[in-house]
Design a protein around this nucleic acid. Sequence first.
RNA 1: GCUCGAGUGGUGGAAUUGGUAGACACGUUGGACUUAAAAUCCAAUGGACAUUAGUCCGUAUGGGUUCAAGUCCCAUCUCGAGUACCA
Length: 940
Amino acid sequence: MIYDFNSIEKKWQKFWADNQTFKADNNAEKPKFYVLDMFPYPSGAGLHVGHPLGYIASDIYARYKRHKGFNVLHPQGYDSFGLPAEQYAIQTGQHPAITTEANIKTYRRQLDQLGFSFDWSREVRTSDPKYYKWTQWIFIQLFNSWYNIDSDKAEDIASLITIFSSEGNTNVNAVCDEDIILFNAAEWNSFTTKKQQEILLQYRLTYLAETEVNWCPALGTVLANDEIVNGVSERGGHPVIRKKMTQWSMRISAYAQRLLDGLNTIDWPQPLKDSQTNWIGRSQGAAVTFYTADEKKYPISVFTTRPDTIFGVSFMTLAPEHELVAEITTSEQKAEVEAYIEATAKRSERDRMADVKTISGAFTGAYAEHPFTKEPIPIWIGDYVLAGYGTGAVMSVPCGDQRDYDFAKHFNIPIPNIFEGVDISEEAFADKEKTIIANSDFLNGLSYKKAVKTAIYELEKLGQGKGKINYRLRDAVFSRQRYWGEPFPVYYVDGMPQMIATDYLPITLPEVEKYLPTETGEPPLGNATTWAWDTVANKVVANAEIDNKRVWPLELNTMPGWAGSSQYFNRYMDPHNNNAIFSEEAINYWQDVDLYIGGSEHATGHLLYSRFWQKFMFDRGFVPKDEFAKKLINQGMITGTSAFVYREEGTGNVISKNLINGKSVIPIHADVSLVNASDELDVEGFRNWQKDYKNSEFILEDGKYIVGREVEKMSKSKYNVVNPDAICEEYGADSLRLYEMFLGPLEQSKPWNTAGITGVHSFLKKLWKLYHSGADSSFVISDEEPTKDSYKTLHKTIKKVEEDIENFSFNTSVSTFMICVNELTAQKCTSKEILEPLAILVSPYAPHIAEELWSKMGHSKSISTAEFPKFEPSYLVESSKKYPISFNGKMKFTMELSLDLSKDEIEEAVMEHEKTQQQLQGRTPKKVIVVPGKIVNIVG
RNA sequence: GCUCGAGUGGUGGAAUUGGUAGACACGUUGGACUUAAAAUCCAAUGGACAUUAGUCCGUAUGGGUUCAAGUCCCAUCUCGAGUACCA
């Protein structure tokens, strides 16, 4: 009987589906284990061989944990809102829901054929109204919450209203907008409802605010910083400009410190933690207030990490956008300042980035007063100061900061030296550790640390400063001018946002004629004709019914891509619950994700926002853990191996790689499916594929055309995409699963080369043969007592595979299986004692063949219910060891010695050996190092 | 520029606390079987010299620690990822 993988795999995939083998129970006696993959965006291109890498790894782990007696939750779903489907809709008029549905079908078929043990009964789709009902629900919870710094957590907005109406806001310590007015209880109670709502909005965790955004006119949308590459949109490469818009924001900044602290409690890759740490960008220093030297005494607050250098300030720099600029600029300087502001506004992000070195700025003509020396300090504006960071103003200390130094040099501003014994004639001195402060009044002679403390103390005495921690992390804009996203459960009464009661969720996406922004520049939902909220009937009605009494307009923006993915891991716990985002029983049973596998590209997007929402959900008592994933692994990327043919310039001949010899050629991508393992091109196939080359002359070497190879990212445009469907057809899913693991460590990126798959495929055939040693290769398994060697082979395999899986070293397990099967084949082992546990060992990696062998051995239940074989160390105990005998650290020969020997006995035996004498050639060794069980090294 | 990660045969990669470098595969070469091909099996395969032993060199480069270094320390180079004037 041959190994007919195609029918075996189909058979077991059907068995698993029919029997719901991997359906997870929400209240089992067994301990829980939650293995999660980052769910995919279902793109039109389908899966290529790089996509399943992480899914295979997590599937192996999930299957292993089942064997180990855990109740495993291993769900899968789709992040199905997103721009590509919308772009396609704009181009073709096809509704994104239809495109998405079709793409999901392809994904599902491709995932199924790989034999994953997903519990598909729990599938979620972010674009499904039954799912996004709960995304809208979370939004409402955020709206109805504020961040209390005293309790250091989010609380219900009702508690804030209670405080306002009983004592006003003077004692409230909250994370809120900067421009808060102070009021007492009586004033609060006398405010109009609208006024009260305006004030509350300044405290809510999601709030409407005027934000400066990256507006892309061509796409009609706002882009996040990470959606802009080199100043143009990542998709399409359209120009991006800065623009002010009223948008929903998330007060993630409230959680900056906790997001930082939480990193210490989770087992995530260090590079990922580092990039979140950088993104949050905590810096400790002081807020200092300077006052202008004129009679108006405008306060200018700055943030500095170096309050110890305050006596080195020789000018101040404001961002050109700073609101004080217009107020303080003198009439003489007005023209110059305005010209500079205009020039910077025109400069695109791209120009600014490409040109970091150019120093530019303008003098405002105004002066500030130094808090201690009372000397006048000139106030400049310069675009190296960013309006969006800190206060948009800096105290410039040219001797201690290179940018300030460069600016001062360029504009001939004095550079006072406040460091003892340091030369600053060439560059600024930014070292904190070796600093001794000089020329600084009461700070003279102090070290950095002491000077910082003293400076802050003195500033506080003056009432002109205090210690402060600043974060780079900005509140996250949550509005998108797009169609294919979650609608907000929000309508507007007199311009003030109102939440729709959660009973009436979901608010489903309206139908529109066109998916583009409206002619008046409103988002695509502005095209909807049935998009108004009837506050009495509590339903969406036609826009024509808007009377601004009972029927009001609905929000036109939709939510960003990360909305749907920020709590999906919790929704999987109870995905069909229509009364709650999840039941208490479900969340209390599953708690959190034990293992999360996905790409590192989500480091500062999805993974930061999810942690933020999780902490919010924790504060409000919805979830028991404030971090959602205990352990996270980034799988590396599988790159493609592109193939190139070379067209000679001039002649147009296509020259085989080794015949180029310095000729001037242009490399052209060839489809990798036209190239065999020996880099030979199917010339006829190439001619038929690229009609332009139909009649070109191909210059061959030894009758073959040899292509060039290069490792690149797998993409359609490089013709290097390898599709898993064809591989499953030719070698089977088990081969593909094994091979993807065999390629190398999970976390490393590595190039794909289909040729190597024959190695794991023939391993599976050998495995099959081990169980089919009868006449006509029929199934044979015996009750014979296994040999010692067979036991040893099995148990060293159990040990290694178990260690490997626990350490996520899946590549080495595959090698271990190969060695095991090679050895058992040589031993002619047919014992059930050995072959039964072997099938279980293999089953997480190659589940189809394992199920088939398992059932042939007479089992009626799935192999996934079998217990993982227990490692028995006694089978590996050795009585002797083949010692490597080294001379001066270099191994010369080996010697078999009993492990019972003492150090001295070993030394004696080694010294007596004739090869030792031969090596020594009569010399007496200076020293003999004996490490029992390891090595002998003879020195001298 | 800064932060982080990585450099091992022709290729993917192995190598526990420092203890036989190159496991396991791919590829290549030779052989068996076959009319032939595929499949399968056997042997060789880091480099150089010697081809019988054997000797020397080898884990990016240069130093160091050690009886012993791919592994630890210092410096340099190269590649990859993240970030972009963060005061």
